[in-house]
Write a protein that binds this DNA or RNA. Structure first.
Length: 368
DNA sequence: CTCAGGACTACGCATAAGGA
DNA sequence: TCCTTATGCGTAGTCCTGAG
C-alpha cells in the first residue's frame, strides 16, 4: 500500500470520555512522506516530555483542530493506518472527527501477517526488533514517525481493512489427544453418540467411553444404544427420541465411568499444527544459536505469557543444557530478558560477564 | 487499570465418500 | 441400501492483545 495516512493520537485514558489531547498524521504518497501535521495545543511546555498527552490541552471539541484534521483527510482521501487502529478510530468517530465508514487499516495486523513469529507486536517491541534507533516518547508526532520507520522496514504486502476476514492460510490445525488410565466394561460393546456442549471436552469424553468398551460414533442411527446429551443439543436428540434410544446427560456419563476409572489422572494435550497441504504456510525453522548450546539460560525476566514459548524454543531448537525461571542461585551462562524494563540484575550480570540479551534481539537471532 | 475486534475453540449440520 | 466416517462450513462463546 503506497498511499496512506499514518495516524497516532494521545488521549487522557483508555476511555473515550477522557478525550483527545494530541493527533499526529503523516501523509504517505508513493511510500514517501509528503506532509506531516501535529494537531495539538501546548499548555505547559515543562511537562510535555512526559508524553501520553501531558502538557497538551484537550482538543476533543476544538473546532479548529478538527477542521485541520478533516482538511487533510478530505484533500487526500487515503486510507488511515494506525497501530491498533480501532482504538484511534473509536475516539475520532466518537467526537465526530471521522466518518464511521472511513477506510481504516491496522498496522499491527499487517505486520503480523508479514512476520507471524514475533513474541510481541507492540510498537516499542517492533522498534527494538527491527533495530530502529528512534525513541518511543508517546508524543504523537514522534510515535507516528516511529511507526512509519517500522512499516518501511517490514513493508507489509497484505493489508486487510478493519472488519474483513483474513486469508485462510494463517489458520492452524489443532490436534488434541486425550489419555485416560485404566479399563472398564460399563459400556462394553455399546454404541454411543455424543451431542450438545458439555464442560468436559468431547475428545476426553470419547477417550473415556472407548476405555469403557464403547464404540463411539458421530450420528444417531437404529444401531445406536445410548445418546449422551449435553447443553443445547441439536437434531441428534430429536432422532434419538424418534428411534426410542436411551438418552442420558453428560453428568450421568461421568458418574457412570468414574466408578471404575480414575479420572483425576486423565490428561488432555493440544498441539498446534501448521496448516499443510494446499497452503504455503511453512513450518517455522529457527536459526540455531551456537552460543546457547549446552548452556544454562535464565528467562526469569520475561513477560509471563512469553515464557513458555521461549522455553519451548530453547529446549527443542537451541539444545540448551537447562533453563531456570527463578533469579536465585542457579548456574547461569546466559540471560534473555524483557525489552521494556531496566533491571538491577543486568548490571550484576555484566560484572560477572554473563551474556544478557533482550527478547527482541533473541527473536531476531532465531528468525534471521 | 478498558474495550474492540481478531484469533481460537468447540460444537452442529450438510454432504460426500467408503463399507458391509 | 443402510450405516458410518471424513470434511468443510457456519456460529456462538471465550480468550488475547494492542492502544493511552
Amino acid at each position: 500500500m503506497d498511499n496512506m495516512i499514518l495516524l497516532d493520537i494521545e488521549t487522557g485514558d483508555f476511555d473515550v470520555d477522557s478525550g483527545i489531547y494530541e493527533l499526529a498524521v503523516l501523509v504517505i504518497k508513493d511510500g514517501r512522506i509528503i506532509q506531516s501535521e501535529h494537531i495539538a495545543e501546548v499548555y505547559d511546555e515543562r511537562i510535555r516530555h512526559l508524553g501520553m498527552g501531558e502538557g497538551y490541552k484537550n482538543i476533543s471539541e476544538n473546532q479548529v483542530m478538527q477542521e485541520r484534521f478533516q482538511h487533510i483527510i478530505n484533500t487526500y482521501q487515503f486510507p488511515i493506518v494506525a497501530h491498533n487502529v480501532s482504538f484511534d478510530r473509536k475516539f475520532l468517530v466518537h467526537y465526530g472527527w471521522l466518518e464511521e465508514n472511513y477506510e481504516c487499516y491496522d498496522s499491527v495486523r499487517a505486520i503480523k501477517y508479514a512476520n507471524p513469529n514475533l513474541f510481541s507486536y507492540s510498537l516499542e517491541y517492533l522498534l527494538n526488533y527491527y533495530d530502529i534507533d528512534l525513541p518511543l516518547t508517546h508524543i504523537a508526532i514522534d510515535d507516528v514517525y516511529a511507526l512509519f520507520e517500522v512499516i518501511k522496514k517490514v513493508d507489509p504486502k497484505k493489508w486487510i481493512p478493519l472488519y474483513k476476514v483474513p486469508p485462510k492460510k494463517f489458520n492452524k490445525f489443532v490436534e488434541a489427544t486425550a489419555n485416560v488410565e485404566g479399563e472398564s466394561l460399563v459400556f462394553q460393546g455399546r454404541r454411543l453418540v455424543f451431542t450438545g456442549a458439555s464442560p468436559f471436552p468431547r475428545i476426553l469424553m470419547k477417550e473415556i467411553a472407548a476405555k469403557c468398551g464403547a464404540i463411539v460414533t458421530g450420528n444417531v442411527s437404529s444401531k445406536t444404544d445410548l445418546l449422551i446429551c449435553g447443553e443445547k443439543p441439536g437434531s441428534k436428540l430429536e432422532k434419538a427420541r424418534e428411534l426410542d434410544i436411551e438418552i442420558q446427560t453428560d453428568e450421568w456419563f461421568i458418574d457412570a465411568v468414574s466408578k471404575d476409572l480414575n479420572l483425576e489422572t486423565a490428561t488432555l494435550t493440544r498441539q498446534s499444527v501448521a496448516a499443510t497441504k494446499e497452503t504455503r504456510y511453512e513450518k517455522i525453522t529457527y536459526t540455531k544459536i551456537p552460543e546457547l548450546r549446552g548452556k544454562f539460560v535464565n528467562i526469569a525476566l520475561l513477560p509471563f505469557r512469553i515464557q513458555k514459548k521461549v522455553e519451548d524454543i530453547l529446549i527443542n531448537h537451541m539444545e540448551v543444557a537447562g533453563i531456570n525461571r527463578g533469579t536465585n542461585g542457579y548456574k547461569v551462562d546466559f540471560i534473555i530478558h524483557s525489552d521494556d524494563r531496566e533491571y538491577v540484575l543486568l548490571g550484576k550480570a555484566k560484572e560477572m560477564q554473563i551474556i544478557a540479551i533482550p527478547l527482541s534481539k533473541f527473536n531476531r537471532m532465531i528468525l534471521s
